[in-house]
Design a protein around this nucleic acid. Structure first.
Lengths: 167, 167
DNA sequence: GACCTGACTTTGTTTCGCCATAGTCAGGGA
DNA sequence: TCCCTGACTATGGCGAAACAAAGTCAGGTC
């Protein structure tokens, strides 16, 4: 079961993965440790020392990751100042960073479902509003849950053609 | 806006990212190139030579990535034989691999939304059943769309307590 | 057995990322 | 200015990953 390649993408041999959107996103993110830094930001961590302590990474590695994520626009670096102390900076998720929520939630759920901690599941994500379990899903704009086999990949111009066919 | 840390996770200083589910998933996936290999499998590619050609990676790199993904259970290695030819192997997504769809779709959408190709958006994912656009979303079991700020992270035992409070 | 060739292994090189460690910078207060 | 210390820089070492290139393996057919 795979994504159906339609229109422009129907012939797999005629297009390249080079510079595909997934690759572009991965470049913006950086190495796996960057994903962990981003996760940490999702958990509310914003200060340098806390990232270092919570992630168990060295200061130089955290510095490099944070810098890259700020440059990529996923985090913003904002000054703060405790009374009587110097100006420091916090790292906050930008809208760009927040929009990776399905990806992050998907990674977390997958890990809990397939590679649980030896003591079993450790993390539940729930909806503050209603208490129900939270997951990342693939859906369509009409609200259907879409399996991989029901996904069609096309070019924007192809989509227009598809609409014409529906008429 | 971040995930709310509840119950067991409320005090950020008392738990560690070490061996968290996201980290476990990332370890199972491997380096960014492994994500591209997995994406390729989502596009329907299954044969060694096609992975190599479509990804523009060397044979040895593809070999290493495929082997790791098979070992992690995301891909299965299945024999096939064209008439008059030797037995070869195809690499197919397992259920474990398929369940990373929200993550993969999220990466793709994010890339198209924030880092479009110079010629603009290249990829549209649509629902074969109704033609509507497909996206990865964070939702709760009751069907609500959940923003990051409305996500509560708790331990499974906490969730039980939460239920008691609701009563 | 020889041949074919897809798939994989090996080797050397380069690059990158992370670590440990030492040192420097920066922005306040005293 | 000095002191403090959070944040960052620099350096050397190591491992992983990817590449280029060469070589080997494996499962058929003839």
């Amino acid at each position: 079961m795979t994504i159906t390649l339609g229109g422009h993408f129907a012939d797999r041999d005629t297009w390249s993965m080079q510079n595909c959107p997934v690759a572009r996103t991965l470049a913006a993110l950086g190495p796996p440790s960057a994903v962990l830094v981003l996760s940490e930001a999702y958990f509310g961590t914003s200060r340098f020392g806390d990232f270092v302590r919570n992630l168990g990474m060295t200061e130089s590695a955290v510095t490099a990751r944070l810098r890259h994520l700020v440059k990529a626009g996923l985090l913003s670096r904002e000054p703060y100042q405790e009374p009587g102390q110097r100006t420091r900076y916090e790292y906050h998720l930008t809208k760009m960073g927040l929009d990776l929520a399905p990806t992050l939630v998907g990674l977390m759920e997958w890990g809990e479902n397939y590679l649980p901690h030896e003591d079993g599941r450790q993390v539940m994500l729930t909806h503050a509003g209603c208490g129900a379990d939270v997951v990342a899903e693939v859906r369509c704009a009409d609200g259907h849950t879409v399996g991989v086999g029901d996904i069609v990949m096309r070019a924007p111009s192809d989509a227009v053609d598809g609409g014409a066919e529906a008429v």
